[in-house]
């Protein structure tokens, strides 16, 4: 457990002063968020696809956690990051609206 704390402490340093408790709470919520969104999206799809995606999600958790550091870096006030996401979302929204999905 001590090792885990040290590991997270090291990882959360990048967040600049955020407490370990806050980071962990946010991390757990994110870990719950992604599978719930997957369920919401894939409930109508067949079981095989759902199982494959669930396994992919587990792999992503093992290799990418903690997510909170990455989420925090992608949600800063930087102009370029905001512009990137605005451009991506504008494209996706138009794609969906025009019947792409």
């Amino acid at each position: 457990m001590d090792n885990l704390y040290d590991y997270l402490h090291e990882k959360f340093k990048a967040l600049g002063g955020t407490q370990i408790g806050s980071g962990l709470s946010a991390e757990f919520i994110l870990l719950a968020f992604f599978p719930l969104v997957l369920i919401a999206l894939l409930r109508g799809v067949n079981d095989t696809i759902a199982i494959v995606l669930a396994l992919l999600f587990i792999v992503a958790v093992v290799f990418s956690a903690p997510f909170v550091v990455k989420v925090s870096k992608e949600n800063t006030d930087h102009y370029n990051i905001a512009a990137f996401y605005v451009a991506i979302v504008m494209g996706i929204v138009m794609f969906i609206m025009l019947g792409g999905i």
Partner: peptide
């Protein structure tokens, strides 16, 4: 979809603020 994303990311980011 975008509202759900905003709810969760907003809450997560709120928790990380100093």
């Amino acid at each position: 979809g975008l509202s759900v994303g905003t709810l969760i990311i907003g809450s997560v980011m709120a928790l990380l603020q100093t």
